[in-house]
C-alpha cells in the first residue's frame, strides 16, 4: 500500500509538471504581455514594469522561478511575516519563536490587479467556486444514487420509466440551457428564490441544482445499470435463498459491488463540476473563480492563469488518487500493485 501511494504521488508530480509546462507555453505563445493593454505605456515604464516582475528574464528562468515559488516551502520569522501572509497560500503559525510561520505555495503577484497577489484573489473567489462545485457534487450523489436504486428495484414499473426519462432529460441538457431556464421559472416567474447573487442559502439553490442536475442523472443511470447487473448474480440468489431479508440483501451484499462503477465516475464528476462552474457563475452573478479566469487569460495575467490551472489540476489528481485508494477498500480483489 505504501509503495502504491508513493507511486501515485510521483505520478501526481509528473502530471502537475506537464500541466504547468503546457499552460506556461500556451500563455507565452499569445503575443503581448500583461502591460501591453489598451493604454499604451512609454517604453521606459514598460521596461521598468517588466524588470520589476522579472518578465525580462529568459523564459526558462521565469518558469523555474515560478515552480520554485510554488513547491519550495519556507519558514519565516519576524516582522515581515504579516506581509508574507498575502504571498503564500498556506500559512501555518508554529508554536515557537517570534511569529515563526510555515509557508507554502507562493503563486506570485497578479499583474492586472496591482498590489494584490494571486493568493489574495484565490482567497476571495476560489472558496465560492469550491462551495458551488462541492454542493453540486453532494447533490448529484444524494439524488442520483437513491434514484438509481429505486428504479433498479422497481424495474419496468412506472416509477422506473419516469425516473429514467427524467434522467435522460437531465443528461442531455447542459448547464448553459438548464441555468437560464431554471432561473426564469423559479426566479422570475414563481419568485420562490432570488434570481441571482451568492451568500444566502436560498441563493445557492438554483445554481447548485443547475450545475448538479445533469450529473445526478448520470449517476442515477449508472447506479441503476450497475445494481441490476449485480442483482442477477448467483451470490444474491444465495443470500435470498438463505432467507436474508431484502433490505440486507440490497444494502449489505448488492450495493457493495454495485458501488464500484459509481466510485469510478466520482473523480471525473468532481473535476467536471469544479471546472464547469463558469456558466453558472455568469448566469447567476456569482463572484467565483470562473469569470476571473477568462478575464485573466485575455489580460495575460500569467500568474493567475498558472495558479488557477495548477490548483484545479491538483484537485483533480488528488480526487482521482483518493478514488483509486478507495477502490482497494471497497473491492479487495483490486490489487494495488
Amino acid at each position: 500500500m505504501g509503495k502504491f501511494i508513493l507511486r501515485r504521488f510521483l505520478w501526481m508530480v509528473l502530471v502537475l509538471f506537464v500541466v504547468s509546462l503546457i499552460t506556461f507555453i500556451l500563455m507565452r505563445i499569445i503575443p503581448g504581455g500583461p502591460f501591453t493593454g489598451e493604454k499604451r505605456l512609454p517604453a521606459a515604464t514598460l521596461a521598468q514594469l517588466n524588470a520589476k516582475y522579472r518578465l525580462d528574464r529568459p523564459l526558462h528562468i521565469q518558469y523555474l522561478s515560478f515552480v520554485e515559488g510554488v513547491i519550495i516551502p519556507r519558514v519565516t520569522t519576524g516582522k515581515q511575516s504579516n506581509y508574507l501572509d498575502h504571498e503564500y497560500l498556506i500559512n501555518v503559525r508554529l508554536p515557537f519563536g517570534d511569529r515563526t510561520t510555515f509557508r507554502w505555495m507562493n503563486f506570485g503577484p497578479s499583474y492586472n490587479s496591482i498590489g494584490r497577489t494571486v493568493n489574495d484573489i484565490f482567497r476571495e473567489h476560489l472558496p465560492i467556486s469550491m462551495q458551488l462545485g462541492f454542493s453540486a457534487f453532494t447533490l448529484s450523489i444524494l439524488i442520483g444514487v437513491p434514484l438509481g436504486i429505486i428504479s433498479a428495484l422497481k424495474r419496468n414499473t412506472l416509477i422506473d420509466y419516469l425516473a429514467m426519462a427524467v434522467a435522460v432529460l437531465g443528461i442531455s441538457v447542459p448547464v448553459i440551457i438548464m441555468a437560464p431556464i431554471l432561473q426564469y421559472i423559479f426566479g422570475v416567474q414563481l419568485k420562490i428564490v432570488p434570481v441571482s447573487g451568492w451568500g444566502n442559502l436560498n441563493q445557492m439553490i438554483l445554481p447548485v441544482v443547475a450545475l448538479g442536475a445533469s450529473n445526478s442523472a448520470l449517476i442515477a443511470r449508472l447506479t441503476r445499470a450497475s445494481l441490476l447487473q449485480v442483482l442477477g448474480q448467483d451470490y444474491i440468489r444465495t443470500a435470498r435463498a438463505k432467507g436474508l431479508i431484502e433490505r440486507l440483501v440490497i444494502f449489505r451484499h448488492a450495493m457493495k459491488n454495485a458501488l464500484i462503477p459509481i466510485v469510478t465516475v466520482l473523480g471525473p464528476t468532481l473535476a467536471y463540476l469544479l471546472c464547469g462552474t463558469f456558466v453558472v457563475e455568469t448566469v447567476f452573478g456569482i463572484p467565483g473563480m470562473g469569470k476571473f479566469f477568462v478575464t485573466s487569460v485575455t489580460g495575460r495575467d500569467y500568474q493567475v492563469i498558472m495558479g488557477t490551472v495548477l490548483l484545479l489540476a491538483m484537485f483533480l489528481v488528488l480526487a482521482n488518487t483518493i478514488v483509486d485508494i478507495l477502490y482497494t477498500f471497497i473491492d479487495p480483489r483490486i490489487r494495488t500493485d
Partner: peptide, 24 residues
C-alpha cells in the same frame, strides 16, 4: 495526463492563443 488537465480551462487557453495570437 491530459485527462487531469481541466478541460474547460484548456479550451479557454487554446481559444485565447488562437484568437489573441492571430491578431499579431
Amino acid at each position: 495526463i491530459m485527462y487531469a488537465f481541466p478541460t474547460y480551462l484548456l479550451i479557454i487557453l487554446l481559444m485565447a492563443v488562437f484568437r489573441l495570437g492571430a491578431s499579431k
